[in-house]
Computed example of a mutant assay.
Amino acid sequence: MQSSVSAAFVHGAVEIEVTAVGVRAHRLPAWARARGDAQLKLAEAQPAGVRLAFATTAQRVALTALATRFGYAGVPPRAPGVFDAVVDGSLVASHSLGSAVVVTLDMATGRTTTSEAEPETLVFDLGPSGPERHVEIWLPHTESVELVALEADAPLRPVAGTGRTWLHHGSSISQGSNAATPTGTWASVAARAARVDLVNLGFGGSSLLDPFVARVMRDTPADLVSLAAGINIVNSDLMRRRAFTPAVHGFLDTVRDGHPDTPLLVMTPILCPIHEETPGPGAFDVAALAEGVTRFRATGDPAEVAAGKLTLQVVRAELERVVKDRKDPHLHLVDGLTLYGPDDVDAHPLPDSLHPDAETHRLIGERFTETVFGAGGAFAGGPFVG
């Protein structure tokens, strides 16, 4: 009883693009996308945290979509993206598209190849029909999706947000790399537990303190704002200490222009052993790739830290200093090592030496919820469910 996907059903996106196939949710507006590189454009089009939300008495909902997946020649492909159906807060079904447009980059030659695919329809069984229920279909966090049609065996009614809006910017860890499902990324785990409406600006490889991202955050309505910074600065070897600290101040200044009194949280990096004392750049571990395993390594020289190169230990100290120096009563700091730190490595190793696995994403999300949304936390005050 619904055909094309109306923007009224889409939550967590910053902009909706009409394509030749359907509609695509973007996490940056077109003017900002034009200022980013190919990596950022790829990441922001993957709809981490974006979901279709509606009220219905329907028993079944069908979503027709076309996915685009990206990979590297010679690197094991990621598993297909997952669509999660949530009814009144409970996950009831998960499905993946059987085929997709696949864009493959050969890093040796710089060439890309693109396959073709047609839209497919996923059918979600929501359980026996009855009173009207709140339904969300969370879109994949690892692949771009064009939404073609949304149909059901009963009317679908768009709904407004259900709580405070949490606007978060971070890296691939915030986007959800290595999480198994879109509701399983640490940010989604925290948002669902705290009953806040997530706008996830976590971009793989692209938490780089870009001024245009700060402007997007400045102009996006939000009740809660957070920034996870550091890992991409280090593993891209983008800045030295002299540039990093003023860039953080400038980013926060811009965000504050639009959110002068909003609770604003700075999150320092979680533990990443390869970059704790060794600067970037990071790179694929070629020996591991030869064995069919994706793993990363740090290639910098620790001796250069004295000359200003950044490690995660340096970044944490600088972020702590920035928050202290700003003397902003609404600015808060959370130590990423309390979310995932040295005591967690044995039980929860990073499978690729960089990103948490699915279980660790959940652990980080639960700890973030308790620390930040719980009593005495920076974002306390909402209908937190412990």
Rank of each mutant, 00 (worst) to 15 (best):
R326W: 07
L333Q: 03
D325H: 07
Y340C: 10
L331P: 03
Y340F: 15
D344H: 12
G341H: 14
A347V: 10
R326L: 08
L337T: 04
D328Q: 08
H330I: 05
V334Q: 00
V323K: 14
R326P: 01
L331T: 12
P351C: 02
R326S: 03
D346Y: 00
H330M: 15
K327E: 10
G341Q: 14
P351L: 08
R326G: 08
D346H: 06
L339P: 09
E318Y: 00
D344P: 09
V345T: 12
R321I: 12
V345A: 08
P329K: 04
V323Q: 15
D325Y: 03
K327C: 02
Y340T: 13
T338M: 11
R321A: 14
P349W: 02
H330G: 08
V322G: 06
L350C: 15
L319C: 02
D325L: 14
H332S: 12
L337D: 11
V345W: 01
H348C: 10
T338V: 12
V334T: 02
T338E: 11
H348W: 01
D325G: 13
K324N: 08
D328P: 00
L333A: 06
D325N: 09
P351N: 04
G336V: 10
D343K: 13
E318D: 07
L331F: 03
P349M: 13
L339T: 10
V334M: 00
A347S: 14
